[in-house]
Structures are given as structure tokens and as C-alpha cells.
């Protein structure tokens, strides 16, 4: 219901600069809930297993999520602007394929890395080109390119594997960047990129424009925002970071098969959604995504320390995703009404 003040336009209302600070509002913020979830995961795991808090164990645990987490950063921006990229895992496969061939051909680490990044960039730009030119929802386009990219990897490799890589390249994925605190390169890159993404999204004008596009793409265009150009850039960066994921993953496992990173797109989307980015666009923070990465990564690690099978962990994470989204809705009693 709207009400129009019928007083003259000269009248002034007193409007505060910001909301009054309330503890309840702070605690109900999604990030606060994630912090509590993270605390629960850490405390629970520490009580259950004496190995959990060991720095070397934790460092090894980061291997299992850092590559995905890097890709989750850009997926968060895509979902924020109402897009989605289902082809990221397939881009990892295609980039990894190219890295594998370069490895077989005897090139050194730098050409391998450059190739991986370049293939990712091209795949991402192709996605972006199709999405912005066709006007078809990106979920459809990227289902198509997902099949295309992974299909190319399958056609090229069949049931073979590529296993020849220079040692200096493998070291990137298998040794620590710093010895103390023990920090794998992938985790370090994730932290650096997370800070860059957070500053970009929350402190720059281009970042602000992403919120506008997500909140209302039509109004964004009317407000002078180059919506299609931004979409194209985001998809391209998504490809580039998938290429980076491929560089790190291939170095870590030292083998490329066509089913590499299979199903990662869903894991990554889970990180983003649990991080509080609304699938309907316009709402989300990088801080939330980073916290969700840690919640998911440490929960997985803790459960595997307890010898829970991976697939059962998936059940629990699926439940966590649905419950964490459903719980606030149930609590606020927002169902039924609209």
C-alpha cells in the first residue's frame, strides 16, 4: 500500500544516515549465522577428532576445496547478476586437456599455465558471447557448452589419460607455498582472490553496478550500465578462473582424465547459495561465500576424518543446503503469503 504525503514539496522529513544498530538485526544477518555454523563445525570436529586442529592436516584439507572455492568467487558474481555458469567444470576438463597435451609435448611450467588459462578464457568468452548475443537464459547456454566442452575432452582422450608433466609444474600443486603456516598455493590464491573480489564487489562502482543488474536488469540499462558488456566480462572471468582451477588441479593430481572435476559445478553452486547469494539476484556478499566455503570444506574434512564415506557427506551437505535456506523462511513464517 502506498501513501503519498500531501504536504508541499518543501517539507522536510528527518531521515537518519543508517539503520539504528540493533543486536538482533546483526545476529540475524546471514554472515553471522554462517559464523555460528563455522564455530559449530570447528568445535564439533575438535571434540570428535584430535587430528582436526593439526595445522598440516588443515592445510591438506584446503586442497580439497581451494580450486572450487576460487571458481565459487566468480560464480557468486554471476548468480548475483541473475546468471549461472554450469560449464565451469567442463572448462576445467578442457583446460586440463590442453595442459596435458602441452605436458606430453615437453613444455615447461609457464607454457602449461599460460595454455590452461588461455583455454579457460576462450571458453568463458564463448559462453559470454552466446549469452549476450542470443538472449537465451545462461542456464540453457551453459548446459549446452558444458556438453560441448566436456564432449571435446572425451572425443580427444577417450578412455586414455595424460600423465606426463614437468616436476616443477607438479610441485606447484603438491608442495606448500610457505612452510609455516603451511599454505598450499591454491589456498593462498583463494585468499588473495577473495580479498580482490570483496574489494571489487563492495567498494568499487563496477561492483555496485552488479547489484543493480541483479536487482533489476532493465532499470540497470536505463541507468547507464553496460549490462551486456558486464555479463560478457563476468563469463570470461569465470572461464579464466576455471582455467586457473584446471592449472592447480592438474598439478595436484598429476593426471588428466576426461571425467576430471565431474560434477564440480553443483558443488560450487552449493557454496555460493549457502553463502547467501540469492538465486533471484541482487543480494549477496563475498564474505558470506568465503564463510560458506569454510563451513563446507571443514565439515567435509571433519566427516572424512571420522571415516564417513564421501557420498554420505554429500547427503549431509545437501541437507545442510536445503535446511539453511528453508530454516529462515520457516522461522520468519513467510510461507504462503506473497
Amino acid at each position: 500500500m502506498s501513501d503519498h504525503p500531501t504536504t508541499s514539496p518543501q517539507s522536510r522529513y528527518t531521515v537518519a544516515d543508517r539503520a539504528p544498530r540493533k543486536l538482533s538485526a546483526f545476529l540475524l544477518r546471514w554472515e553471522s549465522i554462517l559464523v555460528m555454523m563455522l564455530a559449530a563445525v570447528i568445535i564439533g570436529n575438535t571434540l570428535k577428532s584430535p587430528y582436526f586442529l593439526d595445522p598440516f592436516n588443515l592445510a591438506d584439507a584446503t586442497y580439497n576445496f581451494s580450486e572450487k572455492a576460487i571458481m565459487a568467487l566468480i560464480m557468486a558474481l554471476l548468480i548475483l547478476v541473475r546468471e549461472i555458469d554450469l560449464s565451469v567444470a567442463a572448462i576445467v576438463a578442457l583446460s586440463s586437456l590442453a595442459i596435458g597435451y602441452m605436458g606430453e609435448a615437453g613444455y615447461g611450467p609457464l607454457p602449461l599455465i599460460a595454455t590452461g588459462l588461455a583455454v579457460g578464457l576462450v571458453c568463458g568468452a564463448f559462453n559470454g558471447f552466446l549469452v549476450t548475443r542470443s538472449g537465451v537464459p545462461s542456464i540453457v547456454i551453459t548446459i549446452g557448452t558444458m556438453s560441448l566442452y566436456r564432449g571435446i575432452a572425451q572425443v580427444s582422450l577417450g578412455d586414455q589419460a595424460l600423465t606426463t608433466y614437468p616436476q616443477r609444474y607438479l610441485d606447484l600443486g603438491q608442495s606448500y607455498l610457505f612452510d609455516w603456516p603451511p599454505t598450499p598455493l591454491s589456498f593462498f590464491l583463494f585468499l588473495v582472490l577473495a580479498i580482490c573480489f570483496a574489494v571489487f564487489l563492495h567498494k568499487t562502482s563496477a561492483g555496485r553496478q552488479l547489484f543493480a543488474i541483479g536487482a533489476n536488469p532493465v532499470a540497470a540499462r536505463f541507468s547507464g550500465i553496460r549490462v551486456d558488456r558486464i555479463r560478457l566480462i563476468l563469463f570470461t572471468v569465470s572461464g579464466l578462473l576455471a582455467g586457473l582451477g584446471a592449472v592447480l588441479l592438474t598439478a595436484r593430481i598429476g593426471v588428466m582424465r576426461p571425467n576430471i572435476a565431474l560434477g564440480w559445478e553443483l558443488d560450487i553452486i552449493t557454496m555460493v547459495i549457502l553463502g547467501g547469494v540469492a538465486i533471484s539476484g541482487g543480494v549477496g556478499t563475498i564474505g558470506g561465500v568465503v564463510l560458506a566455503v569454510f563451513v563446507l570444506g571443514l565439515a567435509t574434512f571433519g566427516l572424512s576424518l571420522m571415516n564417513v564415506p564421501g557420498i554420505v557427506i554429500n547427503v549431509l551437505l545437501g541437507l545442510l543446503l536445503i535446511i539453511s535456506i528453508a530454516a529462515p523462511i520457516v522461522i520468519r513464517g513467510q510461507s504462503g503469503r506473497r
Binding site: I139, I269, V315, L317, G318, L321, I322, I329, V330
Partner: peptide, 19 residues
């Protein structure tokens, strides 16, 4: 009834059913 987006729900139940 909870108005959770379908892609989120079925992504979650995909993992749950398989597991």
C-alpha cells in the same frame, strides 16, 4: 510451500537422493 527456488531444492535433493 517454502518458496525455495527449484534449482536450489533439486540441487540439494540430487545430492541427498544419490547419497
Amino acid at each position: 510451500f517454502l518458496r525455495i527456488p527449484p534449482i536450489v531444492v533439486t540441487l540439494g535433493t540430487l545430492a541427498i537422493f544419490r547419497g
